[in-house]
Design a protein around this nucleic acid. Sequence first.
DNA 1: GTCTATAATTCGATAGAC
DNA 2: GTCTATCGAATTATAGAC
Lengths: 188, 188
Amino acid sequence: MTGRRSSDQTRAAILRAARERFAAQGYERTTIRTVAADAEIDPSMVMRYFGSKEQLFDAALAVDLRLPDLGSVPAGELPAVLVRHFVERWEGEPADDALLVLLRSAVTNEQAAARMREVFAAQVAPALAAALGPERAARTAGLVATQLLGLALTRYLLRLPAVTSLTPDELVAGLSPALSATLNPPRG
Amino acid sequence: MTGRRSSDQTRAAILRAARERFAAQGYERTTIRTVAADAEIDPSMVMRYFGSKEQLFDAALAVDLRLPDLGSVPAGELPAVLVRHFVERWEGEPADDALLVLLRSAVTNEQAAARMREVFAAQVAPALAAALGPERAARTAGLVATQLLGLALTRYLLRLPAVTSLTPDELVAGLSPALSATLNPPRG
DNA sequence: GTCTATAATTCGATAGAC
DNA sequence: GTCTATCGAATTATAGAC
């Protein structure tokens, strides 16, 4: 037993610090030196544990949306359940840096954009298919993503006052009709 | 008359090259050297004309959405007009780098995010107010922005296959019901 | 108006002592 | 496992010749 942290503790501390920095500053402006300082270790330890800045970034991009089984949600409640799940995911305690890292980085970094497409294909699309059936899911998944990611973009990244000023309940009430219309477009 | 380009030509060439680079790579990965190479001049000329990389960036962020007078659009057609305007704005010829620079940069750069909020307040909000009246506009502008910017995010930045696979007409048809429901929420 | 040369930083990555 | 020292590369920005 030494006074040093275990490998796992050190590794976890580095990853936590890296996610905070990547989330706040993006890939380029985040330096291994500042991550190491946040984790209270030597910069060379970051290289030792993760090999390179790019591999550290890749580890920070791992995200689990924790979507519930949408197949057991009554059809009429699906829009509200979706909006509420993502709002709570973004604003829960502790704030989820992994989600922020992924979205913020995906906009300027092709490696992260590819991960975003993977997350969508592996987590969002199947969950929607369970609720809507494969055909309707295939037809509407893109538009659902547009609205849910649009919310994250304007509220958590751009911080448009017109969006940040809304309460979570107002967001659910305001966006559910739009999602509902997307899933069940009116005849016309 | 010399063989050299005029001041205005040189300045415009620099700005055009800068927008392309900022749009494709974001602020940090864009270097004055590559911008100068694209514009076929010496890097020091960029400094001479724009003072610094940050001031060049600021010049590249100027955007005019060219929104039409929404007050003269029949209420029922407003959603489709909005979606079509922005899709054409993004996909028109030539591709509008200024718009891409602004959105891409605003996600990781506070200077650009502030500009995005300014553009929203100065161009989007007044146009919506002309169509909907000040009260309804104030209530729905944030949700409208969520959907239109969400479209740009998923289609042009993240390039989600579920969104890029849609044609412009399919986008208009698919998103109009959602916008319509936002502007005229069903009683409930 | 345009270019050369270079100053002054900063960063990722490596080698090696302990 | 942790740290010191440093290399090599890249960048913004400036000074000054022509």
